[in-house]
Amino acid sequence: MRASFVFSEVVTGLRRNVTMTIAMIITTAISLTLLGSGMLVVRMIDNTQELYQDKLQVHIFLTNDVGDKDKTCTQDPCKRLKAELESNTDVIDEVVFESREQAYERFRRIFEGQPELVQVARPEALPASLQVKLKNPDRPEVIAQTYATQPGVDKVVDQSDFLDKFFDALGGIQALAFVAAIVQAIAALLLISNTVQVSAYTRRTEVGIMRLVGATRWYTQLPFLLEAVVAGVIGAIAAIGLLVGVKSWFFDEVIGNGKLIDPNIISPIRGVDVVAVTPWLVLTAILISAVTGYVTLRLYVRR
């Protein structure tokens, strides 16, 4: 196999068919950008879940009168509740009391990025709570059932409930990105197939001669296949550029990646995440363009 021959055939092919090549690169790039965005959201969810894995707690919020009178949880009913929880060592790992002042401190820390929120908040507006860390974070509803109706308890909040809702919303965005990516991928697929056909047609004389003088299938078809792959890879590189743009503009500026919300609560999308996604985009591009090219040659081009 003479690499220089195949290479020069690929370059001529792409140049001869330049409008189609550009269309192919653009659709591939958009499709892969959407795919990449979806993958970034997946990583964001994963990172956030990891963040919470051993921190997920059930908060038992105490009624206002308990929170006002008992700042240290040394009186009933707070004391009784705490003791009861702590005795249940099979299920519960740790119980921590958080007073209204401590809650306010934590609130200020979380919403540092939004001073206007911190300004309107008062310690009195935040309830005192018992923060229960479970041994097995899979079954937080047991605590809710047992303690929601006890005296001194206002309500029981399961953090995983809130996270589930948040992840559902993210999952929706992600599903949308994936569906759009698939639609674009179909367009890209058809364009690749068409480009390969046009390319093979414009070079039918060459291919005819090649076949006649006994060139192997690699020589006659590899240039077309590589054309598709080269265009696919260029599309992937463009997609990576777009994805960096999406990260720094959409996630960083609009959603306020890690600024609006404490990065310890919802994991931001980091540069590392973009880097981790890129090889998959390139691989997808190579795989899709090569397979489409191969199938097209099989179906439409005589050998």
Binding site: M1, F5, E206, I209, M210, V213, T216, Y219, T220
Partner: peptide
């Protein structure tokens, strides 16, 4: 030359 190039 083409006839020879394409058969390597």
């Amino acid at each position: 030359a083409f006839a020879l190039e394409v058969i390597g």
